[in-house]
Amino acid sequence: MFKRLMMVALLVIAPLSAATAADQTNPYKLMDEAAQKTFDRLKNEQPQIRANPDYLRTIVDQELLPYVQVKYAGALVLGQYYKSATPAQREAYFAAFREYLKQAYGQALAMYHGQTYQIAPEQPLGDKTIVPIRVTIIDPNGRPPVRLDFQWRKNSQTGNWQAYDMIAEGVSMITTKQNEWGTLLRTKGIDGLTAQLKSISQQKITLEEKK
């Protein structure tokens, strides 16, 4: 169930391209415009997507990853294993993690069937560096609404905000991946996880038929 919630949630996290980005210092504006741009692209490019579902990787690479804190999220997933990894191991892992996100997020976007969304009203940021933004996803086919909290983090150097995690039903996506990959990290280390991520990233994206 959580895996499905995570995939549905990713439908609204794909941010804007650099040329049309919203105010990078306001995570609420980023979330709002990102959702609108993403849904528009999914709707307008269905012919290309249906002809070649792996085209979704391109959308992810162009529109999402430049505005997601990939390395920060990847380091959180590694936890204690990050500090013990060599620079070469980290570089290989982050490259594999990025390719994994292209496949995983692309597969999530393949679930698009006309969903709509509501974003919580903007709250004062103050001096906060981590801000959760509640998004409610509404399914046109009558499924119950899904309420999610996207975690946005302020870059201490640039002042810009980027998304790095999502919490559904009190469970963090980062925590879920830590639990899912924990045994592999304990037995085969970061190299074993890197190899698995490379394998997963090679899987073809498949479209979910409308139910």
Rank of each mutant, 00 (worst) to 15 (best):
P87M: 09
K128G: 09
D191R: 03
W161F: 08
I138E: 07
Q48S: 09
G74K: 00
I130H: 04
I119S: 08
R98P: 08
Y100H: 12
D139S: 14
D23Q: 11
T194M: 06
S172Y: 01
R4N: 06
R134Q: 01
P121R: 12
N26V: 05
A88T: 07
A104G: 14
E169S: 05
I205W: 06
I205G: 09
E91I: 08
L184T: 06
I190D: 02
E63A: 03
P87S: 12
K198I: 11
V135Q: 03
T176C: 08
T175S: 05
T38M: 12
K43A: 14
A22M: 14
K198E: 13
Q46W: 03
E122G: 11
V70N: 14
P27A: 09
K154V: 07
L185C: 13
T58P: 10
L207P: 08
L11Q: 02
A21C: 04
P132G: 07
A104N: 03
T194Q: 15
T38Q: 04
L184A: 10
T38V: 14
W152I: 06
V60E: 00
Y82E: 00
F97G: 01
G106Y: 02
G79A: 04
Q178I: 02
M7P: 00
Q162C: 07
T116G: 14
P66W: 03
Y55M: 07
D32I: 07
Q48K: 13
A51D: 14
D54P: 05
R143Y: 08
Y55F: 07
M173E: 00
Y164W: 02
S172V: 04
A75L: 02
R147L: 04
I200C: 13
W152S: 03
R41S: 06
M31V: 01
D139H: 08
T187D: 03
K102S: 12
W152K: 00
V68E: 14
Y117A: 03
E63M: 02
N141Y: 09
L185W: 03
M173K: 02
N160Y: 10
S84A: 11
N52P: 00
V12D: 00
L76I: 13
A18N: 13
G192Y: 09
W181G: 15
D32M: 07
Q202T: 12
Q157T: 08
V171H: 00
S199E: 13
D23E: 12
R147C: 04
M6G: 01
L30I: 02
A21W: 06
I190L: 05
L185R: 12
G114S: 10
K29Y: 13
Q162H: 08
A168V: 10
A14T: 10
W161P: 01
Y164E: 00
K43P: 04
A104M: 15
A34M: 15
M1P: 00
L10H: 02
N155W: 00
D191Y: 07
L56C: 04
V77Y: 11
F39S: 02
L30D: 11
K71E: 02
A9D: 02
A163M: 13
L30Q: 08
I137N: 11
T58A: 09
D54K: 04
Q115D: 05
T129V: 07
A92C: 13
V8H: 01
W161T: 01
Q69H: 09
Q162R: 07
R186D: 00
A92Y: 06
W181S: 15
D23N: 12
Q80E: 01
P53Q: 12
Q80P: 14
K210R: 14
I205Q: 14
I167R: 07
N179R: 05
L125C: 06
T158D: 03
P140M: 13
R186C: 04
A88Y: 12
M6P: 00
I190K: 01
T136D: 04
Q80A: 11
V60L: 03
M31E: 02
K188G: 10
K102E: 11
D191L: 04
E180C: 03
Y112T: 04
R153L: 01
T25Y: 15
P121C: 09
L184I: 09
N26S: 12
P124E: 11
M31C: 01
Y93D: 02
A21N: 11
A21L: 07
T38R: 00
A120Y: 09
S84G: 11
K177C: 14
Y105C: 03
S199F: 05
E208T: 10
L5T: 01
T25G: 13
V68M: 15
P132I: 12
A163P: 14
L76F: 05
A19M: 04
A85H: 04
M111L: 12
K198D: 13
Q69K: 02
Y93F: 10
I200D: 08
N155H: 01
I167H: 06
P15D: 08
A168E: 02
M7W: 08
Q36N: 13
A120K: 14
Y55G: 09
A108S: 08
A120W: 15
T86A: 08
F39N: 01
A88R: 08
S199P: 14
L197Q: 11
K188H: 08
Y67T: 12
K204I: 07
P121N: 13
F97L: 03
K204A: 13
Q118N: 11
E45H: 05
Q80F: 08
N141D: 06
E122V: 10
L207Y: 14
T25V: 08
A35M: 15
T176L: 01
E209G: 12
S172W: 01
L185F: 05
W152G: 01
A21K: 09
G170A: 02
P27H: 03
I174T: 11
Y55K: 11
P87F: 11
Q202I: 06
P47A: 12
M173S: 00
L148V: 15
W152H: 04
T25F: 08
Q46K: 07
F2S: 02
S172L: 00
L56I: 14
W152N: 03
K204Y: 06
T38I: 09
E169D: 07
A163S: 14
T194K: 07
H113R: 07
S172G: 07
K177P: 00
T129G: 08
A96P: 10
Q62H: 08
K71G: 04
G79I: 01
L109I: 05
T158R: 11
P132E: 03
P66T: 06
T129Q: 08
L30G: 12
L16E: 03
E63L: 00
N179G: 13
M6S: 01
Q123C: 14
Q46L: 12
R153F: 00
Q80R: 14
R57G: 12
S17W: 10
K204R: 07
N52T: 11
R153K: 02
A88L: 10
T206F: 08
A168I: 15
Q80G: 09
K204S: 12
Y82W: 08
Y67H: 05
R143N: 03
L56Y: 10
R153M: 01
T206A: 11
V60F: 04
P47L: 13
N141Q: 05
G189V: 01
A18W: 13
A92H: 09
R50N: 11
R143G: 08
G126M: 15
K37W: 07
P53D: 15
L125T: 13
Y72E: 00
L193H: 08
G159C: 07
I137R: 01
N52V: 05
Y82I: 01
Y164F: 14
L193M: 10
E169V: 04
V8C: 14
E63G: 03
E208R: 07
Q48L: 13
Y105A: 00
G114T: 09
Q107I: 14
E63C: 02
S17L: 09
W161L: 03
G170W: 04
K177N: 15
T20R: 11
F2T: 02
V146C: 07
V68C: 11
L10C: 08
A195R: 11
T38K: 01
F39G: 02
A110H: 15
F39W: 03
A85C: 06
V60C: 14
N179E: 03
A104S: 11
Y72K: 00
L125M: 14
A92Q: 10
R57P: 12
Q202E: 07
L185T: 14
A18T: 14
G142K: 14
K29R: 08
Q24K: 13
I138Y: 11
L125I: 11
P145T: 06
A92T: 11
A73N: 03
D54M: 13
A88D: 13
D54C: 05
L185H: 09
N44P: 05
A18E: 13
M31D: 00
S84K: 08
T38S: 09
G192P: 13
I138P: 15
R147Q: 03
A96Q: 10
K198H: 13
Q24H: 12
Q103G: 15
P15L: 10
D149P: 00
G106F: 03
S84M: 14
Q48Y: 08
K3Q: 04
Q157S: 05
L193F: 06
M111C: 05
A22R: 06
P140N: 09
Y82H: 05
A96G: 13
Y93W: 04
I167A: 08
I130D: 00
L76V: 11
N44D: 14
A168F: 14
D127M: 05
L101T: 15
P144N: 05
Q151G: 07
A168R: 01
A19D: 00
D139W: 07
Y55L: 08
K177E: 10
